[in-house]
Every structure is written in structure tokens, then in C-alpha cells.
Simulated assay, not measured.
Amino acid sequence: MATKATKNHVLRIREQVLSFGEPAPQVPGPFVASQIQPGSRYELSNGHPVYCMPSGKRGGRSNLVGGEVLETDPSVKSAGVDVGFALQENGLRAPDVSVGDFENEPGWAPGAPPLAVEYADTGQDEGELRKKIAELLAAGTKHLWVVRLVGSPRVEVFEPGKPMRTARPGEDLVAPGILKNPVPVLAMFDRGAAHEATLRNLLQRKGYESLDAVRAEGEARGRAEGEARGRQDVLLGMLAARGLRVAKKAEERIRATIDKATLDGWVLRAITAASVAELFEDKAKQAPRKKAARAKR
């Protein structure tokens, strides 16, 4: 039976949790998620504190580039690094990277993320990792990827009710309904591959399917602008040949117009126009003027 002194010690530790968010490892709990404050290096497993070590250089670097790929996917509403999810009252887990629909505000995210990623590097506690995977899947996570950085780089894929499978460089990771694009395994830890996948995602967010689509649009626009420039030169040359003075604003308007049909219409009008202003008049206004001119003749 616990003595009064022991109980007082536990109470003091719990006060520290509320004040500093750091439960002492020697006190097993139980704690609840609301007692752990943002910034604490502890997760909760069935109310018991689990200390989370900082990432090493390799793990931190890989974590960042992989998270970048997921966060920029066109279908992703929100993603984060080390976001704490209150799985239940006495459960709190913070995947290395998570994708979900959580608000940009303080506090823990409720429930479990649809997609979670863990990076396993040197010193990984395998027993604790298995427990974390099981708790996240049981709470509602649909896809959990464990990126193995030790030995042959690979990603272990966990889904509820399915056996774990291993994906290796050259293969893709998919999360239907969560991510629009497949994620190359290499992009989860290789900076160059991650940048390529991120660029694809950012282009798609702007309406382009790929960098080739951007190039094709640029080439098409260049051709259109070149053709427009030719028509503009013809039009200005005709006006000059007919002795019609082109004011600065009129020339700017002509140079700013690249629509083929509009420029062709102006070229035709330039053959008979009495002034540059007539180029820009609509046909309804031109008709009475032409009728009056014919009547005078």
C-alpha cells in the first residue's frame, strides 16, 4: 500500500505535468492526455508516459523531406511534424509525420491521423514502435508507414486487417482518399527525389499536371505572342503607310492585344479607316458613319 509520502510525491509530479508538461519517468501514471502540455517530450500509452528522444541528424533530415512531399500533395488539407493526437482520454501519440484535417491552433488533435509516418533509425525501441503502431491503427489510422533508415532503405506499410508489406526504392506508396499522388519510396528519405515529388505536387496545386505541361504552355504562349507581334507590326505599318498618326495610348493598346481575331479585324479596318480611333469602334457605331459617307458621295 502506498504511503502518504509516496502519494504526496505522485501529486507533486502530476503538478509538474500540469505546469511543465514533463512527467517523471519513475512515476508510471496513469495520466490523461489533458495533463500533458504541448512541448512535452512524452506520449501516453494507456495512461503511462513514453519518453520520445530527439531525432538524430539523419532522422531529422529525412523527416523533413518526407513531410514536405506529403504536405504539398494536392489532396492534403493539413500535415504536421510531431503533432500530438489524443487517441482517447489516456492515450496520446505523436507520429513523426501525420496527414489529416486538423486546425492550425494550439492543443492536441482529436482522434487518429488517417496517414502516419514513423522514421526508424539507430537506437529505435522496436517494442515501443510496435505498440505505437498498434494503438494508432486501432484508433483509426488507415495507413502507417515506417521508414527504415538502418540497413537497406525501405518502408514498411501497415494497414488495418492486412499483413505488413515492405516497399523498396523503385516502388510507390499510395494512400487512396488521402493523397492524390503516389509517393516514390525514395522520396521519403532522399532529398533529390523528395524535391521532384514536391515540385510535381506544387505544380498540380497551380493547375499543371507536370513540368512538361508548364513547358508546353510556355512554348504555346511564346508562339502565340510571336504571331501576335507579327500582326501588330503589320497593322502599325499599314497605319503609317496611310499617313495615320498613332498616339502612344493607341500603340500601347495594339501592343497589348494578342488575340488573333481582334488583330485581324483591326488590320481589315485599317485599309479604309479615316483615323486610328475607327479601329477600336464597334461595328454598330461604324455603320451609320459609313452610310453617311456614301450619301455624300
Rank of each mutant, 00 (worst) to 15 (best):
L92E: 01
E71D: 08
A33C: 11
G56W: 02
S19C: 08
P38Y: 13
P25W: 04
N90D: 15
V83T: 03
P28V: 09
G91P: 01
Y42F: 15
T72G: 03
G29W: 05
S55G: 04
L87Q: 06
F31H: 10
S40Q: 09
F85D: 04
P25L: 14
L92N: 04
P30M: 13
Y42I: 11
K77L: 11
E68Q: 11
N63T: 09
A24D: 05
H48Q: 14
V76I: 05
G59H: 04
H48R: 15
Q26D: 07
R61L: 09
F20Q: 09
L70V: 04
P23V: 04
P25T: 08
S75R: 12
Q16I: 14
M53C: 09
P95I: 08
Q35F: 10
A79V: 02
A86P: 00
Q35M: 15
K57G: 04
G91L: 01
A86Q: 14
P95Y: 00
V17C: 15
P54R: 13
S19L: 15
R58D: 05
G29T: 02
Y51I: 07
V65A: 01
S40W: 00
V65K: 00
R93A: 12
Q35T: 00
G80N: 08
P74K: 11
V17I: 12
E43H: 02
Y42P: 03
L18T: 08
S78T: 07
A94R: 15
A94Y: 04
V65Y: 05
L92T: 06
V17Y: 03
D82P: 00
Q26M: 07
P30Q: 13
Y42K: 13
V27A: 10
E43V: 11
G47Y: 11
G80L: 12
K77C: 01
P23K: 06
Y42H: 13
V83K: 12
S78K: 09
D73M: 10
K77V: 05
R93C: 03
P74L: 11
C52S: 07
P49A: 01
G39I: 13
E43L: 08
N90L: 01
F85I: 07
G56F: 03
G47P: 04
S34M: 10
E89T: 12
Y42S: 06
L18H: 01
V50G: 01
P49H: 04
V69R: 12
S34T: 14
S40D: 06
G91D: 14
D73Q: 05
N46W: 11
E71T: 08
V69E: 06
P74F: 10
A94I: 03
Q88M: 06
G60M: 06
Q16H: 11
P54E: 09
F31K: 12
F31P: 03
S75G: 08
E71L: 10
R58C: 05
Y42A: 03
Q16E: 13
V65C: 06
G47S: 10
